[in-house]
């Protein structure tokens, strides 16, 4: 009996490992484990043995069955793996062929910059306000303390349109986003903390000027805001925008709608690689809102005071992203936008 088991053990293992493919292997399996397979027969024979023999022989037979089963499974796994490997090898393709083509969208650098600025100022408590681009003389000038005879009007290089307002004055393409200050305060009681973004127009077209560009205008009106709060707000806002502590220079300047008024310069490396040497670049205008402007909005200047600040979006975008021809922004050239446009995802992930 033991002789028979030993033979089965030896030939079984040899046949299993000798099976060249899954079909052969199945034949071997049937030979041992099929209905009339040799191991199946042995197991069946257990029933006819006496208890003592069954005890000793039974253990041996089960051991043989297990050994052959394990060998079968492992041979099957190996053959399947080999078959799969061979199939995969046949399915190999040239992965250097081009992938399916899709276009990549980018947000225009000006749009992306406006959104980024809005987010920074949003964290600082500034909500949004909007206003029209074709504006009346009143909202673009007079209400901002720039009457018709004011010499500051010369600095604005205004575009006029043929459409007239209710007073019979030609409307203008707004020269600044400051018009939104007035419209907001007239319709919303103080206090105020808003920022407005949008297109503005000046009659100027050369290497550093385009007849349209974008501005932002912030306004904060409350009981006790001072020039110190204005300086703090601008420092924080520019620090956040440039992502570093920027060195600023505040200079007294004149804008008719603020008093005192100031301009803000940022110390900018002359050479990006060696940033010890800097020059001053003007980035913003700002000031304490003029009492005449508050009056035009129906806000009592003895109760309320505050500040306004404005900046050119293109300027900020150019400084941050390092391109230098403003005219490129409005040509729609996709090669430029591919380089300087922003991915939509970055806006939320930042």
């Amino acid at each position: 009996m033991n002789e028979q088991l030993n033979t089965l053990h030896t030939t079984g293992l040899a046949q299993l490992s000798g099976a060249a493919n899954l079909e052969d292997l199945e034949q071997v399996r049937l030979n041992y484990f099929g209905k009339s397979g040799q191991v199946t027969q042995l197991l069946k024979s257990l029933g006819q043995m006496d208890a003592e023999t069954r005890k000793t022989q039974g253990a041996e037979i089960h051991k043989l069955r297990e050994t052959l089963q394990t060998a079968f499974t492992s041979r099957k796994d190996a053959l399947e793996q080999a078959e799969l490997d061979s199939k995969l090898a046949q399915e190999k393709v040239d992965i250097t062929l081009p992938g399916t083509a899709h276009t990549t969208g980018k947000m225009h650098p000006v749009s992306a910059t406006m959104i980024e600025l809005a987010e920074i100022l949003g964290r600082m408590g500034f909500g949004h306000a909007v206003g029209p681009e074709v504006e009346t003389d009143y909202y673009n000038f007079s209400a901002l303390n720039i009457p018709a005879e004011h010499p500051a009007r010369q600095d604005h290089d205004t575009f006029y349109v043929e459409t007239k307002d209710e007073e019979g004055l030609r409307k203008v393409l707004r020269t600044q986003t400051s018009n939104v200050q007035i419209r907001h305060l007239q319709n919303n009681p103080a206090p105020a903390r808003i920022v407005s973004f949008g297109r503005v127009y000046r009659h100027d077209y050369d290497a550093t000027h385009t007849p349209q560009f974008h501005q932002m205008e912030g306004l904060a009106i409350d009981k006790d805001l001072t020039l110190g709060h204005l300086k703090g707000t601008i420092q924080k806002f520019l620090n956040d925008f440039f992502g570093r502590e920027v060195t600023l220079r505040f200079r007294i300047h004149y804008f008719p709608f603020v008093e005192p008024g100031l301009e803000v310069d940022v110390a900018w490396p002359i050479d990006q690689k060696a940033d010890e040497k800097t020059r001053w670049l003007e980035v913003m205008g700002a000031g304490m809102v003029h009492r005449n402007v508050l009056a035009a909005c129906g806000v009592d200047h003895t109760q309320w005071q505050g500040f306004a600040f404005g900046a050119g979006i293109e300027r900020l975008a150019m400084l941050k992203h390092g391109f230098n021809d403003i005219r490129q922004l409005f040509t729609g050239r996709v090669d430029f936008l591919q380089s300087y446009g922003q991915l939509a995802a970055k806006l939320t992930a930042k």
Partner: peptide
């Protein structure tokens, strides 16, 4: 305005800004 810019860009559009005139 913002949602639309984002949607178009995510759809694969290159956002341009052209002149108002």
């Amino acid at each position: 305005d913002r949602a639309m810019r984002t949607a178009l860009v995510q759809a694969g559009a290159m956002e341009v800004q052209t002149y108002s005139f």
